[in-house]
Amino acid sequence: MPEALAYIESHREQYVDALLAHLTIDAISLLICVAVAAPLGYLGAKCGRLTLPLQNVTGMIRIIPGIAIFLVLIPITGLGQTPAIIALVIMSVPPLLMSAIAGLRSVAPSVVESAAAMGMGRLQTLIEVELPLALPTLLDGLRITTVSLIAGTTIAAYVGAGGLGTLIVSGLSQNKQGVMLAGALTAAAIAIAADAFIAAMRRRALRKISA
Protein backbone atom coordinates (compact mmCIF):
# COMPACT_ATOMS: atom_id res chain seq x y z
CA MET A 1 0.00 0.00 0.00
CA PRO A 2 2.52 2.68 0.94
CA GLU A 3 4.46 1.89 -2.25
CA ALA A 4 1.28 2.26 -4.26
CA LEU A 5 0.59 5.67 -2.68
CA ALA A 6 4.16 6.71 -3.22
CA TYR A 7 3.90 5.82 -6.89
CA ILE A 8 0.64 7.74 -7.30
CA GLU A 9 2.25 10.69 -5.52
CA SER A 10 5.30 10.74 -7.78
CA HIS A 11 3.62 9.91 -11.08
CA ARG A 12 0.37 11.74 -10.61
CA GLU A 13 -0.10 12.68 -14.28
CA GLN A 14 0.57 9.18 -15.54
CA TYR A 15 -1.81 7.74 -12.94
CA VAL A 16 -4.62 10.15 -13.74
CA ASP A 17 -4.20 9.50 -17.47
CA ALA A 18 -4.49 5.76 -16.89
CA LEU A 19 -7.51 6.24 -14.66
CA LEU A 20 -9.29 8.48 -17.18
CA ALA A 21 -8.48 6.14 -20.06
CA HIS A 22 -9.89 3.28 -18.01
CA LEU A 23 -13.12 5.10 -17.22
CA THR A 24 -13.52 6.25 -20.82
CA ILE A 25 -13.24 2.70 -22.13
CA ASP A 26 -15.73 1.52 -19.50
CA ALA A 27 -18.22 4.27 -20.27
CA ILE A 28 -18.11 3.74 -24.03
CA SER A 29 -18.36 -0.04 -23.66
CA LEU A 30 -21.25 0.25 -21.23
CA LEU A 31 -23.17 2.52 -23.58
CA ILE A 32 -22.65 0.08 -26.44
CA CYS A 33 -23.69 -2.83 -24.20
CA VAL A 34 -26.94 -1.07 -23.33
CA ALA A 35 -27.52 -0.14 -26.97
CA VAL A 36 -27.09 -3.79 -27.97
CA ALA A 37 -28.92 -5.41 -25.06
CA ALA A 38 -31.97 -3.13 -25.05
CA PRO A 39 -33.40 -3.93 -28.50
CA LEU A 40 -32.26 -7.55 -28.45
CA GLY A 41 -33.66 -7.98 -24.95
CA TYR A 42 -37.00 -6.50 -25.98
CA LEU A 43 -37.19 -8.76 -29.03
CA GLY A 44 -36.11 -11.76 -26.97
CA ALA A 45 -38.80 -11.08 -24.40
CA LYS A 46 -41.60 -10.33 -26.87
CA CYS A 47 -41.03 -12.86 -29.63
CA GLY A 48 -41.28 -16.26 -28.05
CA ARG A 49 -39.41 -17.77 -30.99
CA LEU A 50 -36.31 -15.66 -30.37
CA THR A 51 -36.07 -16.16 -26.63
CA LEU A 52 -34.32 -19.49 -26.58
CA PRO A 53 -31.83 -18.88 -29.43
CA LEU A 54 -30.80 -15.57 -27.87
CA GLN A 55 -30.39 -17.16 -24.47
CA ASN A 56 -28.31 -19.97 -25.95
CA VAL A 57 -26.01 -17.67 -27.89
CA THR A 58 -25.42 -15.40 -24.93
CA GLY A 59 -24.82 -18.43 -22.76
CA MET A 60 -22.16 -19.67 -25.17
CA ILE A 61 -20.40 -16.31 -25.33
CA ARG A 62 -20.15 -16.28 -21.57
CA ILE A 63 -18.09 -19.47 -21.65
CA ILE A 64 -15.33 -17.93 -23.80
CA PRO A 65 -12.56 -16.47 -21.62
CA GLY A 66 -12.12 -12.73 -22.01
CA ILE A 67 -8.44 -12.93 -22.85
CA ALA A 68 -9.20 -15.27 -25.75
CA ILE A 69 -11.60 -12.74 -27.26
CA PHE A 70 -8.90 -10.06 -27.02
CA LEU A 71 -6.29 -12.23 -28.72
CA VAL A 72 -8.60 -13.41 -31.50
CA LEU A 73 -9.44 -9.80 -32.33
CA ILE A 74 -5.85 -8.53 -32.66
CA PRO A 75 -5.27 -9.92 -36.19
CA ILE A 76 -8.58 -8.46 -37.33
CA THR A 77 -8.60 -5.03 -35.77
CA GLY A 78 -5.01 -4.49 -34.69
CA LEU A 79 -4.06 -3.00 -31.35
CA GLY A 80 -5.58 -0.12 -29.47
CA GLN A 81 -8.85 1.03 -27.98
CA THR A 82 -11.18 -0.26 -30.68
CA PRO A 83 -10.41 -3.99 -30.32
CA ALA A 84 -10.49 -3.55 -26.56
CA ILE A 85 -13.96 -2.07 -26.64
CA ILE A 86 -15.23 -4.69 -29.08
CA ALA A 87 -13.90 -7.48 -26.89
CA LEU A 88 -15.24 -5.91 -23.72
CA VAL A 89 -18.71 -5.54 -25.21
CA ILE A 90 -18.74 -9.15 -26.37
CA MET A 91 -17.75 -10.44 -22.97
CA SER A 92 -19.93 -8.13 -20.89
CA VAL A 93 -23.16 -7.92 -22.84
CA PRO A 94 -24.54 -11.39 -21.96
CA PRO A 95 -25.59 -10.67 -18.36
CA LEU A 96 -27.30 -7.46 -19.41
CA LEU A 97 -29.10 -9.13 -22.29
CA MET A 98 -30.18 -12.07 -20.16
CA SER A 99 -31.52 -9.78 -17.45
CA ALA A 100 -33.37 -7.71 -20.04
CA ILE A 101 -35.12 -10.81 -21.35
CA ALA A 102 -35.80 -12.19 -17.87
CA GLY A 103 -36.90 -8.84 -16.50
CA LEU A 104 -39.41 -8.06 -19.23
CA ARG A 105 -40.74 -11.60 -19.15
CA SER A 106 -41.24 -11.38 -15.39
CA VAL A 107 -43.86 -8.65 -15.73
CA ALA A 108 -47.25 -10.29 -15.22
CA PRO A 109 -48.96 -10.81 -18.60
CA SER A 110 -52.24 -9.67 -17.04
CA VAL A 111 -50.71 -6.29 -16.26
CA VAL A 112 -49.32 -5.83 -19.77
CA GLU A 113 -52.61 -6.96 -21.23
CA SER A 114 -54.66 -4.54 -19.20
CA ALA A 115 -52.33 -1.74 -20.25
CA ALA A 116 -53.03 -2.65 -23.87
CA ALA A 117 -56.74 -3.08 -23.21
CA MET A 118 -56.91 0.40 -21.70
CA GLY A 119 -55.55 1.83 -24.89
CA MET A 120 -51.88 2.31 -24.02
CA GLY A 121 -49.52 2.05 -26.97
CA ARG A 122 -46.55 -0.33 -26.98
CA LEU A 123 -44.00 2.35 -26.21
CA GLN A 124 -46.16 3.83 -23.48
CA THR A 125 -46.67 0.39 -21.94
CA LEU A 126 -42.93 -0.23 -22.08
CA ILE A 127 -41.97 3.05 -20.47
CA GLU A 128 -44.74 3.42 -17.92
CA VAL A 129 -45.41 -0.17 -16.97
CA GLU A 130 -42.89 -2.75 -18.10
CA LEU A 131 -39.62 -0.93 -17.42
CA PRO A 132 -40.46 0.15 -13.86
CA LEU A 133 -41.60 -3.38 -13.03
CA ALA A 134 -38.57 -5.02 -14.66
CA LEU A 135 -36.13 -2.50 -13.23
CA PRO A 136 -34.74 -4.56 -10.31
CA THR A 137 -33.89 -7.42 -12.67
CA LEU A 138 -32.46 -5.03 -15.25
CA LEU A 139 -30.25 -3.47 -12.58
CA ASP A 140 -29.05 -6.94 -11.57
CA GLY A 141 -27.75 -7.40 -15.09
CA LEU A 142 -26.34 -3.89 -15.27
CA ARG A 143 -24.44 -4.53 -12.06
CA ILE A 144 -22.74 -7.66 -13.33
CA THR A 145 -22.01 -6.08 -16.71
CA THR A 146 -20.51 -2.95 -15.18
CA VAL A 147 -18.26 -4.84 -12.78
CA SER A 148 -17.23 -7.19 -15.56
CA LEU A 149 -16.32 -4.21 -17.76
CA ILE A 150 -14.22 -2.52 -15.10
CA ALA A 151 -12.33 -5.72 -14.40
CA GLY A 152 -12.06 -6.63 -18.08
CA THR A 153 -10.59 -3.28 -18.99
CA THR A 154 -7.48 -4.12 -16.95
CA ILE A 155 -6.82 -6.96 -19.40
CA ALA A 156 -7.30 -4.53 -22.28
CA ALA A 157 -3.83 -3.18 -21.51
CA TYR A 158 -2.45 -6.29 -23.26
CA VAL A 159 -3.88 -5.07 -26.56
CA GLY A 160 -2.57 -1.59 -26.01
CA ALA A 161 -5.81 0.07 -25.00
CA GLY A 162 -4.34 1.94 -22.04
CA GLY A 163 -6.09 2.22 -18.71
CA LEU A 164 -5.19 1.01 -15.24
CA GLY A 165 -4.16 -2.34 -16.68
CA THR A 166 -1.08 -0.62 -18.11
CA LEU A 167 0.14 0.03 -14.57
CA ILE A 168 -0.46 -3.59 -13.60
CA VAL A 169 1.34 -4.93 -16.66
CA SER A 170 4.37 -2.66 -16.35
CA GLY A 171 4.52 -3.11 -12.58
CA LEU A 172 4.58 -6.86 -13.05
CA SER A 173 7.22 -6.87 -15.78
CA GLN A 174 9.48 -4.44 -13.95
CA ASN A 175 8.79 -6.10 -10.64
CA LYS A 176 7.57 -2.82 -9.14
CA GLN A 177 4.89 -3.76 -6.66
CA GLY A 178 3.84 -0.19 -6.01
CA VAL A 179 2.99 0.44 -9.65
CA MET A 180 1.10 -2.82 -9.95
CA LEU A 181 -0.86 -2.23 -6.77
CA ALA A 182 -1.73 1.33 -7.73
CA GLY A 183 -3.39 -0.04 -10.87
CA ALA A 184 -4.99 -3.11 -9.29
CA LEU A 185 -6.32 -1.43 -6.16
CA THR A 186 -7.78 1.50 -8.04
CA ALA A 187 -9.57 -0.80 -10.50
CA ALA A 188 -10.88 -2.84 -7.56
CA ALA A 189 -12.07 0.29 -5.77
CA ILE A 190 -13.96 1.53 -8.83
CA ALA A 191 -15.56 -1.88 -9.29
CA ILE A 192 -16.65 -2.07 -5.67
CA ALA A 193 -18.04 1.47 -5.73
CA ALA A 194 -19.97 0.86 -8.94
CA ASP A 195 -21.31 -2.40 -7.56
CA ALA A 196 -22.49 -0.78 -4.33
CA PHE A 197 -24.07 2.13 -6.19
CA ILE A 198 -26.09 -0.07 -8.55
CA ALA A 199 -27.03 -2.38 -5.69
CA ALA A 200 -28.48 0.60 -3.85
CA MET A 201 -30.42 1.66 -6.95
CA ARG A 202 -31.76 -1.85 -7.25
CA ARG A 203 -32.96 -1.88 -3.66
CA ARG A 204 -34.78 1.37 -4.26
CA ALA A 205 -36.40 0.06 -7.43
CA LEU A 206 -37.46 -3.10 -5.65
CA ARG A 207 -39.05 -1.20 -2.79
CA LYS A 208 -41.20 0.62 -5.30
CA ILE A 209 -42.75 -2.50 -6.71
CA SER A 210 -43.02 -4.90 -3.79
CA ALA A 211 -44.63 -4.52 -0.42
Binding site: S110, V111, S114, A116, G119, E128, V129, L133
Partner: peptide, 16 residues
Protein backbone atom coordinates in the same frame (compact mmCIF):
# COMPACT_ATOMS: atom_id res chain seq x y z
CA UNK B 1 -60.18 0.35 -26.32
CA UNK B 2 -60.37 3.69 -24.58
CA UNK B 3 -64.17 3.55 -24.88
CA UNK B 4 -64.37 0.07 -23.42
CA UNK B 5 -63.61 -0.56 -19.75
CA UNK B 6 -61.73 -3.73 -18.91
CA UNK B 7 -61.56 -5.51 -15.57
CA UNK B 8 -59.84 -8.86 -15.10
CA UNK B 9 -59.09 -11.34 -12.37
CA UNK B 10 -56.30 -10.18 -10.04
CA UNK B 11 -57.46 -6.85 -11.48
CA UNK B 12 -54.38 -6.30 -13.70
CA UNK B 13 -53.70 -3.17 -11.69
CA UNK B 14 -50.32 -1.49 -12.09
CA UNK B 15 -48.56 -2.64 -8.93
CA UNK B 16 -46.03 0.19 -8.88
Amino acid sequence: RRQIGYVIQQSGLFPH
